[in-house]
Design a protein around this nucleic acid. Structure first.
Lengths: 222, 222
DNA sequence: CGTCCCCTTGACTGCAGTCAATGGTCGTGG
DNA sequence: CCACGACCATTGACTGCAGTCAAGGGGACG
């Protein structure tokens, strides 16, 4: 169970961010490591020996069916932890979205710190709880939202996570977006074009986006 | 963030079951309470003052959009804990599926126990992590599975959770199933009929079901 | 300059949704 | 005990949203 922090949610785990330390625990120092774009961090079924913390870049976690259908369950940005499992093997595959630097921790050490210090365990509990909330938000999105609502919600999430200025560059491909939203790349592409037509956003070029947030918000109102 | 245990997964949180105590902690005694069928346990937006443990019956948690679209995020059977939130308000609505008895705990007391005893915090962490895994399995189901695959997977999950004998009675209505699987009641109904036609199950009457599990398993193979 | 990959757009298909009618079961009250 | 109504489930006919198949544009990079 990699604790997934879905793109775009505000302040995923405040206590986990902004520090080089793990859960405020000075004796847990991670080993720095780098991954190239599209490189695998760990694969589904592998032994879950380590957990990871993003320093720079971005990582995605996903599951695949035998016929190639893929569902991305989370995008992990700087500060996020991922790679935790309940059992002894990874139940997802993790790959670098872009070149990424991470800190690697021995899972056993983290678990040891949690059993020794209730404070650490509580932080990890809070992190898991928060990730659960995000996963359940995604559940509502996938189960009951239209394509337009999904894309609009996704754009607002990415915006918030990238500073909330309304102007940003998408860090992932159409394929990644589609596999996160349960759509096809064609539908994502068409939906973005329609949103632009409707004046809900502008596309200065490339993956650059400028959102008309009030308009988008009205499309995902619940 | 109610820790949802989706119907049908094996041994959701072993350490949480089979005991009248909370997380093996003798000083946390819950207050017994009962709810009638369809009665609300708590509503979205309400203050999250308590957490709950199912003793008998079943509870569902869900989110609704303003136009009535509903997504059930979990069914909670005896032994399951639900009602935890990261913030101070409930982000779901919880309702009794059938007449249900629960134990109610003061959230503050549970959190207190967690900060005092790392062992308790670790159990809660494990529970949240496990629920996260279930939520992510549901994500794959909703994002990338066909109607037939969803229903087949759902039936096998319910079977496992209800003893794994292959013969059981569905504890929820078509509406609940549909709102859990992101489908309509008509599609659920049609799919069940097709599965019966194809010899994947039998319907002796009412909500009674007898699964041909090997056949069903082949339909959801990944 | 050419190739590769990503993205967009168009035409058509098909799966699941919608609308509608009917049947079944249960509980209630005449 | 039966009649009625309410609710739940099934089935059929049709619709529509998103998927599929296909073609072509546009950057990045060698």
């Amino acid at each position: 169970m990699p604790p997934h922090t879905a793109v775009g949610h505000p302040a995923p785990v405040p206590s986990m961010n902004g520090s080089g330390l793990f859960a405020g625990c000075p004796d847990l120092i991670g080993t720095p490591f780098s991954y190239a774009r599209e490189e695998e961090v760990y694969g589904e079924g592998e032994e879950a020996e380590f957990v990871y913390r993003v320093v720079s870049g971005a990582v995605r976690t996903h599951k695949v069916l035998s016929d190639g259908r893929r569902q991305i369950t989370g995008f992990h940005l700087p500060g996020d932890l991922f790679g935790f499992e309940q059992g002894d093997t990874h139940r997802h595959t993790a790959e670098a979205l872009s070149d990424a630097r991470v800190l690697i921790f021995k899972r056993r050490q983290v678990e040891r710190a949690a059993t020794d210090r209730a404070e650490v365990a509580c932080q990890l509990w809070g992190m898991a709880t928060n990730n659960l909330r995000l996963a359940q938000d995604l559940t509502l999105l996938l189960g009951r939202r239209t394509a337009t609502e999904r894309v609009a919600a996704f754009l607002m999430e990415v915006d918030e996570r990238l500073g909330g200025s309304g102007t940003f560059s998408l860090p992932m491909t159409r394929r990644d977006i589609a596999d996160y939203l349960g759509l096809t790349i064609e539908t994502v592409s068409r939906t973005l074009s329609q949103l632009e037509e409707g004046g809900a956003l502008q596309r200065p070029g490339g993956r650059q986006l400028s959102l008309r947030r009030a308009k988008l918000r009205r499309m995902v109102e619940d």
